[in-house]
Nucleic acid binder design. Structure first.
Lengths: 114, 114
DNA sequence: GTCATAGGCAACCTCCTGGTTGCATCTTAC
DNA sequence: GTAAGATGCAACCAGGAGGTTGCCTATGAC
Protein backbone atom coordinates (compact mmCIF):
# COMPACT_ATOMS: atom_id res chain seq x y z
CA UNK A 1 0.00 0.00 0.00
CA UNK A 2 2.96 2.31 -0.27
CA UNK A 3 1.85 3.60 -3.71
CA UNK A 4 4.97 5.39 -4.86
CA UNK A 5 4.20 8.23 -7.26
CA UNK A 6 4.99 7.44 -10.91
CA UNK A 7 8.21 8.69 -12.50
CA UNK A 8 7.77 11.23 -15.30
CA UNK A 9 9.71 11.20 -18.56
CA UNK A 10 11.07 14.68 -17.80
CA UNK A 11 12.67 13.36 -14.63
CA UNK A 12 14.38 10.61 -16.58
CA UNK A 13 15.84 13.21 -18.93
CA UNK A 14 17.09 15.15 -15.94
CA UNK A 15 18.51 12.20 -14.05
CA UNK A 16 20.43 10.55 -16.90
CA UNK A 17 23.11 13.29 -17.24
CA UNK A 18 23.42 13.38 -13.46
CA UNK A 19 24.26 9.69 -13.24
CA UNK A 20 26.39 9.90 -16.37
CA UNK A 21 28.49 12.55 -14.62
CA UNK A 22 28.92 10.19 -11.68
CA UNK A 23 29.78 7.27 -13.93
CA UNK A 24 33.44 7.97 -14.53
CA UNK A 25 36.21 6.81 -12.24
CA UNK A 26 38.28 9.97 -12.55
CA UNK A 27 35.27 12.14 -11.76
CA UNK A 28 34.27 9.99 -8.80
CA UNK A 29 37.80 10.29 -7.48
CA UNK A 30 37.54 14.05 -7.86
CA UNK A 31 34.32 14.10 -5.86
CA UNK A 32 35.76 11.88 -3.15
CA UNK A 33 38.83 14.08 -3.00
CA UNK A 34 36.75 17.25 -2.73
CA UNK A 35 34.56 15.66 -0.09
CA UNK A 36 37.58 14.71 1.99
CA UNK A 37 39.55 17.92 1.77
CA UNK A 38 36.97 20.65 1.29
CA UNK A 39 37.09 23.30 -1.45
CA UNK A 40 40.16 23.10 -3.72
CA UNK A 41 41.69 24.76 -6.75
CA UNK A 42 42.17 23.03 -10.10
CA UNK A 43 45.94 22.98 -9.73
CA UNK A 44 45.73 21.33 -6.33
CA UNK A 45 43.27 18.76 -7.61
CA UNK A 46 45.33 17.90 -10.67
CA UNK A 47 48.54 17.69 -8.65
CA UNK A 48 47.24 14.53 -6.98
CA UNK A 49 45.93 13.03 -10.16
CA UNK A 50 47.58 11.01 -12.89
CA UNK A 51 45.90 12.95 -15.69
CA UNK A 52 46.62 16.46 -16.92
CA UNK A 53 45.22 19.72 -15.58
CA UNK A 54 43.13 20.16 -18.71
CA UNK A 55 41.55 16.75 -18.25
CA UNK A 56 40.65 17.68 -14.68
CA UNK A 57 39.20 20.94 -15.90
CA UNK A 58 36.97 19.14 -18.39
CA UNK A 59 35.77 16.77 -15.70
CA UNK A 60 34.98 19.65 -13.39
CA UNK A 61 32.96 21.23 -16.19
CA UNK A 62 30.97 18.03 -16.61
CA UNK A 63 30.35 17.81 -12.88
CA UNK A 64 29.38 21.45 -12.83
CA UNK A 65 26.88 21.05 -15.65
CA UNK A 66 25.35 18.17 -13.73
CA UNK A 67 25.10 20.44 -10.68
CA UNK A 68 27.35 18.26 -8.55
CA UNK A 69 30.03 20.90 -7.95
CA UNK A 70 30.18 24.65 -8.01
CA UNK A 71 33.12 26.74 -9.14
CA UNK A 72 34.08 30.09 -7.67
CA UNK A 73 36.72 32.36 -9.14
CA UNK A 74 38.90 33.96 -6.46
CA UNK A 75 41.64 36.11 -7.86
CA UNK A 76 43.67 33.97 -10.19
CA UNK A 77 42.43 30.77 -8.63
CA UNK A 78 39.30 28.82 -9.38
CA UNK A 79 37.98 27.09 -6.27
CA UNK A 80 35.61 24.17 -6.60
CA UNK A 81 33.30 22.74 -4.00
CA UNK A 82 30.67 20.05 -3.68
CA UNK A 83 26.96 20.72 -4.10
CA UNK A 84 25.45 18.18 -1.69
CA UNK A 85 21.88 18.77 -2.77
CA UNK A 86 22.39 17.04 -6.10
CA UNK A 87 23.60 13.94 -4.29
CA UNK A 88 20.35 13.89 -2.39
CA UNK A 89 18.44 14.31 -5.66
CA UNK A 90 20.14 11.28 -7.17
CA UNK A 91 19.49 9.25 -4.03
CA UNK A 92 15.85 10.12 -4.01
CA UNK A 93 15.48 9.20 -7.63
CA UNK A 94 16.93 5.74 -7.03
CA UNK A 95 14.76 5.32 -4.00
CA UNK A 96 11.63 6.05 -6.01
CA UNK A 97 12.47 3.41 -8.61
CA UNK A 98 13.05 0.90 -5.83
CA UNK A 99 9.76 1.65 -4.16
CA UNK A 100 7.87 1.36 -7.40
CA UNK A 101 9.40 -2.02 -7.97
CA UNK A 102 8.23 -3.11 -4.54
CA UNK A 103 4.74 -1.91 -5.40
CA UNK A 104 4.78 -3.85 -8.66
CA UNK A 105 5.80 -7.04 -6.87
CA UNK A 106 3.07 -6.49 -4.31
CA UNK A 107 0.49 -6.14 -7.05
CA UNK A 108 1.75 -9.31 -8.71
CA UNK A 109 1.55 -11.15 -5.44
CA UNK A 110 -2.04 -10.09 -4.81
CA UNK A 111 -2.95 -10.92 -8.39
CA UNK A 112 -1.67 -14.45 -7.96
CA UNK A 113 -3.42 -14.86 -4.62
CA UNK A 114 -6.79 -13.85 -6.07
CA UNK B 1 31.41 14.97 15.06
CA UNK B 2 29.73 12.63 12.62
CA UNK B 3 33.12 11.28 11.38
CA UNK B 4 32.06 9.46 8.24
CA UNK B 5 34.40 6.59 7.36
CA UNK B 6 36.77 7.33 4.45
CA UNK B 7 36.03 6.05 0.97
CA UNK B 8 38.49 3.48 -0.39
CA UNK B 9 39.84 3.46 -3.94
CA UNK B 10 38.39 0.00 -4.49
CA UNK B 11 34.93 1.32 -3.80
CA UNK B 12 35.39 4.05 -6.38
CA UNK B 13 36.30 1.41 -8.94
CA UNK B 14 33.17 -0.52 -8.04
CA UNK B 15 30.83 2.46 -8.03
CA UNK B 16 31.87 4.05 -11.32
CA UNK B 17 30.46 1.30 -13.58
CA UNK B 18 27.31 1.25 -11.48
CA UNK B 19 26.64 4.94 -12.06
CA UNK B 20 27.75 4.67 -15.67
CA UNK B 21 25.06 2.03 -16.20
CA UNK B 22 22.50 4.43 -14.73
CA UNK B 23 23.76 7.31 -16.84
CA UNK B 24 21.94 6.59 -20.06
CA UNK B 25 18.43 7.76 -20.84
CA UNK B 26 17.38 4.58 -22.62
CA UNK B 27 18.62 2.45 -19.75
CA UNK B 28 16.95 4.64 -17.14
CA UNK B 29 13.70 4.33 -19.09
CA UNK B 30 14.15 0.57 -19.08
CA UNK B 31 14.57 0.55 -15.31
CA UNK B 32 11.56 2.81 -14.79
CA UNK B 33 9.53 0.60 -17.08
CA UNK B 34 10.59 -2.55 -15.25
CA UNK B 35 9.88 -0.91 -11.91
CA UNK B 36 6.37 0.04 -12.99
CA UNK B 37 5.32 -3.19 -14.66
CA UNK B 38 7.26 -5.91 -12.87
CA UNK B 39 9.31 -8.60 -14.65
CA UNK B 40 9.19 -8.44 -18.46
CA UNK B 41 10.61 -10.15 -21.53
CA UNK B 42 12.95 -8.45 -24.01
CA UNK B 43 10.33 -8.44 -26.74
CA UNK B 44 7.79 -6.74 -24.48
CA UNK B 45 10.34 -4.16 -23.37
CA UNK B 46 11.48 -3.35 -26.88
CA UNK B 47 7.90 -3.14 -28.16
CA UNK B 48 7.43 0.06 -26.17
CA UNK B 49 10.75 1.52 -27.14
CA UNK B 50 11.90 3.48 -30.16
CA UNK B 51 15.13 1.52 -30.54
CA UNK B 52 15.64 -2.01 -31.79
CA UNK B 53 15.40 -5.21 -29.82
CA UNK B 54 19.15 -5.70 -30.09
CA UNK B 55 19.80 -2.30 -28.62
CA UNK B 56 17.53 -3.16 -25.68
CA UNK B 57 19.38 -6.44 -25.28
CA UNK B 58 22.72 -4.66 -25.09
CA UNK B 59 21.37 -2.23 -22.50
CA UNK B 60 20.02 -5.08 -20.42
CA UNK B 61 23.47 -6.70 -20.56
CA UNK B 62 25.05 -3.47 -19.30
CA UNK B 63 22.50 -3.21 -16.50
CA UNK B 64 23.04 -6.85 -15.67
CA UNK B 65 26.81 -6.46 -15.46
CA UNK B 66 26.26 -3.55 -13.11
CA UNK B 67 24.02 -5.79 -11.00
CA UNK B 68 20.97 -3.59 -11.46
CA UNK B 69 18.82 -6.24 -13.15
CA UNK B 70 18.75 -10.00 -13.24
CA UNK B 71 17.79 -12.11 -16.25
CA UNK B 72 16.05 -15.46 -16.03
CA UNK B 73 15.56 -17.75 -19.00
CA UNK B 74 12.10 -19.32 -19.04
CA UNK B 75 11.53 -21.50 -22.04
CA UNK B 76 12.11 -19.40 -25.09
CA UNK B 77 11.66 -16.17 -23.19
CA UNK B 78 14.17 -14.21 -21.20
CA UNK B 79 12.53 -12.45 -18.27
CA UNK B 80 14.29 -9.51 -16.64
CA UNK B 81 13.68 -8.04 -13.23
CA UNK B 82 15.09 -5.34 -11.02
CA UNK B 83 17.71 -5.97 -8.36
CA UNK B 84 16.78 -3.40 -5.72
CA UNK B 85 19.84 -3.99 -3.57
CA UNK B 86 22.13 -2.30 -6.08
CA UNK B 87 20.00 0.83 -5.94
CA UNK B 88 20.52 0.91 -2.20
CA UNK B 89 24.27 0.46 -2.73
CA UNK B 90 24.41 3.47 -5.04
CA UNK B 91 22.38 5.54 -2.61
CA UNK B 92 24.61 4.67 0.29
CA UNK B 93 27.68 5.58 -1.69
CA UNK B 94 26.33 9.03 -2.52
CA UNK B 95 25.31 9.49 1.07
CA UNK B 96 28.82 8.75 2.28
CA UNK B 97 30.34 11.36 -0.02
CA UNK B 98 27.82 13.90 1.22
CA UNK B 99 28.53 13.21 4.85
CA UNK B 100 32.26 13.45 4.32
CA UNK B 101 31.78 16.81 2.71
CA UNK B 102 29.81 17.96 5.75
CA UNK B 103 32.65 16.78 7.98
CA UNK B 104 35.18 18.69 5.89
CA UNK B 105 33.18 21.89 6.16
CA UNK B 106 32.85 21.39 9.91
CA UNK B 107 36.60 21.02 10.23
CA UNK B 108 37.15 24.15 8.16
CA UNK B 109 34.71 26.06 10.32
CA UNK B 110 36.44 25.00 13.54
CA UNK B 111 39.82 25.77 12.04
CA UNK B 112 38.72 29.33 11.23
CA UNK B 113 37.23 29.78 14.66
CA UNK B 114 40.44 28.75 16.44
C1' DG C 1 57.08 46.80 -14.99
C1' DT C 2 58.39 42.08 -15.07
C1' DC C 3 58.08 37.47 -14.20
C1' DA C 4 56.13 33.36 -12.45
C1' DT C 5 51.88 31.14 -11.54
C1' DA C 6 46.86 29.74 -12.32
C1' DG C 7 43.80 29.05 -15.53
C1' DG C 8 41.24 28.96 -20.20
C1' DC C 9 40.83 27.70 -25.26
C1' DA C 10 41.36 25.02 -29.34
C1' DA C 11 42.90 21.41 -32.16
C1' DC C 12 43.72 16.86 -32.37
C1' DC C 13 43.69 11.73 -31.53
C1' DT C 14 41.90 7.24 -30.03
C1' DC C 15 38.71 4.29 -28.30
C1' DC C 16 34.32 3.20 -26.45
C1' DT C 17 29.38 3.39 -26.84
C1' DG C 18 24.86 3.29 -28.67
C1' DG C 19 22.77 1.97 -32.54
C1' DT C 20 21.81 -0.80 -36.79
C1' DT C 21 21.22 -4.97 -39.98
C1' DG C 22 21.59 -9.80 -41.08
C1' DC C 23 21.69 -14.32 -39.87
C1' DA C 24 21.73 -18.43 -36.73
C1' DT C 25 19.57 -20.94 -32.90
C1' DC C 26 16.34 -22.64 -29.85
C1' DT C 27 11.29 -23.47 -28.27
C1' DT C 28 6.70 -24.11 -28.62
C1' DA C 29 2.34 -24.80 -31.12
C1' DC C 30 -0.06 -27.51 -34.20
C1' DG D 1 8.34 -32.23 -38.31
C1' DT D 2 7.46 -27.74 -39.56
C1' DA D 3 6.49 -23.13 -39.09
C1' DA D 4 6.47 -19.11 -36.29
C1' DG D 5 8.02 -16.64 -32.40
C1' DA D 6 11.83 -15.14 -29.06
C1' DT D 7 16.39 -14.60 -28.52
C1' DG D 8 21.48 -14.58 -29.28
C1' DC D 9 25.67 -13.40 -31.98
C1' DA D 10 28.70 -10.84 -35.08
C1' DA D 11 29.99 -7.28 -38.06
C1' DC D 12 29.67 -2.76 -38.95
C1' DC D 13 29.13 2.41 -38.44
C1' DA D 14 28.92 7.26 -36.60
C1' DG D 15 29.53 10.19 -32.95
C1' DG D 16 30.95 11.43 -28.49
C1' DA D 17 34.06 11.06 -24.45
C1' DG D 18 38.43 11.15 -22.26
C1' DG D 19 42.85 12.48 -22.89
C1' DT D 20 46.94 15.14 -24.72
C1' DT D 21 49.79 19.12 -26.38
C1' DG D 22 50.50 23.89 -27.46
C1' DC D 23 49.53 28.40 -26.85
C1' DC D 24 47.18 32.56 -24.95
C1' DT D 25 45.38 35.45 -21.01
C1' DA D 26 44.99 37.18 -16.51
C1' DT D 27 46.50 37.94 -11.86
C1' DG D 28 49.64 38.47 -7.97
C1' DA D 29 54.42 39.04 -6.03
C1' DC D 30 58.43 41.56 -6.06
Amino acid sequence: MSQASPIAAAQVRDAAPLFAALGDETRLRLLVRLAASGPESITHLSAESTVSRQAIKKHLDVLSKAGLVRGDRRGREHIWELEPKRFADACEYLDRISRQWDDALDRLKHFVED
